[in-house]
Amino acid sequence: MEQIYQEVIKGFQRMTLPDIIAMVFGVISVLCSRRNSVWVYPTGLISTGIYTYTLAQAHFRLYAESALNAYYFIMSIYGWYNWSRNTTSAGDHVGISVVNRRELGIAVGIVIIGWGILYMLLHNFSDSDVPALDAFVSATACSGMWLLAKRKIENWIFLNISNLVAVPLLFYKKYESLAVLTIFLFIVAVDGYFRWRKLYRQQLNENKP
């Protein structure tokens, strides 16, 4: 534990200004997501934009996660537009729902197909030394982000599967600051899942005749 602690401290000491900005806005973004606030997207655009560049650098070589953040960036624009169309007069965002069978099939399909495609690309056309894990983290997160844009409760499940695998991967890659951020995201996502379930039940009660 002492060695891990020392590595984490060293990781934070190595943080650059862009790293700090990306982490701060990443934390703000996930907290906004937990609160079902549209600000998850503009804050997320800043964080994902920086991580798209950082993760592709030669000392990390996490190309799938870099591409994932580029996907996050694009989906944040879509999600921002989609969420902004559905607001109350007070600016609160509603419309949380659960996946139906078709949507669950699509979400699982994104994971399976995305994992296979990303692994093939990383294994054959990059110098990645962790193609399977990098591809899996990205595929599950892609699915979770798609569900988040549609305001589905299950987005938290897919995102946390991704986070769970990403933490040891990031420690292995000596990106300790992002690993610690991902642990924080995991904890918030667990709480976010139950918070969204509560909001969903409140929605159902309010819509009862």
Rank of each mutant, 00 (worst) to 15 (best):
I28N: 04
L122S: 08
Q6M: 07
I187E: 13
L199R: 01
Y81M: 11
K208N: 12
N163L: 03
N86D: 12
D129K: 14
P18M: 13
D129Q: 12
R195P: 00
M145N: 12
L122C: 01
S89R: 03
C32P: 10
H59W: 12
M23G: 01
A64E: 10
M23K: 07
K152W: 10
G44K: 09
N205L: 00
E103R: 04
P168W: 11
Q202D: 12
R101E: 10
R61I: 03
E2F: 15
K10S: 13
A141V: 09
W115H: 13
L62S: 04
M75A: 06
F158M: 10
V30L: 10
H123I: 08
N207P: 04
T88Y: 11
R101F: 10
S89N: 09
Y175R: 04
L147A: 08
I20Y: 12
W115Q: 13
T182S: 11
E206P: 15
R197Y: 02
V27R: 03
Y81A: 15
M1I: 05
V30I: 15
Y175V: 00
T43V: 15
S47F: 02
N36V: 05
I187A: 10
T52I: 08
W146R: 05
W83D: 01
I4E: 11
N205W: 02
L169C: 10
I20G: 01
A149Y: 09
F186S: 15
Y81T: 14
R14V: 05
I46E: 06
E206F: 10
M145I: 15
K10G: 12
Y5R: 07
L148V: 00
G114N: 08
W196D: 03
R151N: 08
W156D: 01
T88D: 12
F194V: 13
I96W: 06
L122D: 04
S37L: 05
L181Y: 14
V111F: 03
R61S: 01
Q13L: 12
A64L: 11
S66T: 13
I50S: 00
M120V: 01
G116C: 03
Y51P: 01
S128T: 04
A90M: 14
L62P: 09
L148K: 00
E206V: 12
I74H: 11
N160M: 15
W83K: 04
F194L: 14
D127I: 08
S143Q: 06
L122G: 00
G114E: 15
F12Q: 14
W156Q: 02
A179E: 11
K198G: 02
E7F: 06
H59Q: 13
D134R: 00
N205T: 05
P131C: 11
